[in-house]
């Protein structure tokens, strides 16, 4: 049978017929695009990239500590701190502040965090990298800039009783540069850095 001939004839379609075509078209295409496409992608993707597929989870001692792609709040002085979050780092409440530069609340919030960060790290406000003052877009930005890590090294090392150099080396090894030297910005993953700090602390104690 010729393929062309086996299709519906090219004759005028009645109004009712065109509604039936639309209904059949909608269902066929929704199944193709909304079921087959995503499920095939999930099946093949999960096969090729099993670790990434479930959210890049990080485990320690058999417990899920978090995800490399989800920032966490840190307040203990012995941990590096991440960026301000408008969502309190809750991944179901994800949000930026959505405040414009002219919003009075933004200025107020920035003044408070500037004062707190300056005091905690013993630096002048003019030395605070802007990513520590500005809230992230997602509310769970896992990264900080190298400058933002730099100003926290003194505080972290003295809170942990570690030599400053040891912490500085840790910071340097966790620095991720732009990909191929072009894409993205230099950055550090705060959760990974803090996990490494804990591991370092455990080593020192064991010795």
């Amino acid at each position: 049978m010729n393929k062309r001939e086996s299709l519906a004839p090219a004759r005028p379609v009645t109004p009712a017929g065109s509604w039936i075509q639309a209904l059949r078209g909608a269902l066929v295409l929704m199944v193709l695009c909304g079921v087959l496409y995503p499920l095939v992608t999930v099946a093949i993707g999960a096969l090729l990239f099993p670790d990434q597929s479930t959210g890049s989870l990080i485990e320690r001692d058999g417990r899920v500590i978090g995800s490399a792609l989800v920032g966490q709040p840190f307040s203990a002085p012995g941990y590096f701190q991440g960026r301000p979050s408008a969502a309190g780092y809750d991944p179901f409440a994800l949000s930026g502040s959505n405040q414009a530069p002219s919003h009075p609340d933004l200025r107020e919030r920035a003044a408070a965090s500037s004062k707190a960060i300056a005091a905690a790290n013993g630096v002048a406000p003019a030395a605070i990298p802007v990513d520590l003052i500005a809230a992230s877009g997602s509310g769970i930005d896992p990264h900080i800039s190298p400058e933002a890590a730099e100003i926290q090294i003194d505080r972290v090392s003295s809170a942990r009783g570690l030599p400053r150099d040891a912490v500085a080396v840790l910071v340097a090894t966790h620095l991720e540069g732009p990909v191929l030297g072009v894409l993205g910005q230099p950055r550090l993953n705060v959760l990974r850095l803090n996990l490494a700090l804990d591991a370092l602390g455990a080593q020192v104690t064991a010795r």
Binding site: S102, S114, P129, V130, S138, I144, Q185
Partner: peptide
């Protein structure tokens, strides 16, 4: 960002932006 004048080092407007992109 005008809201951060004198409160942080001078830099691009990172409010609502992610560090990895800039």
């Amino acid at each position: 960002n005008a809201a951060f004048a004198d409160l942080a080092a001078e830099g691009p407007n990172l409010e609502g932006k992610e560090v990895r992109f800039g």
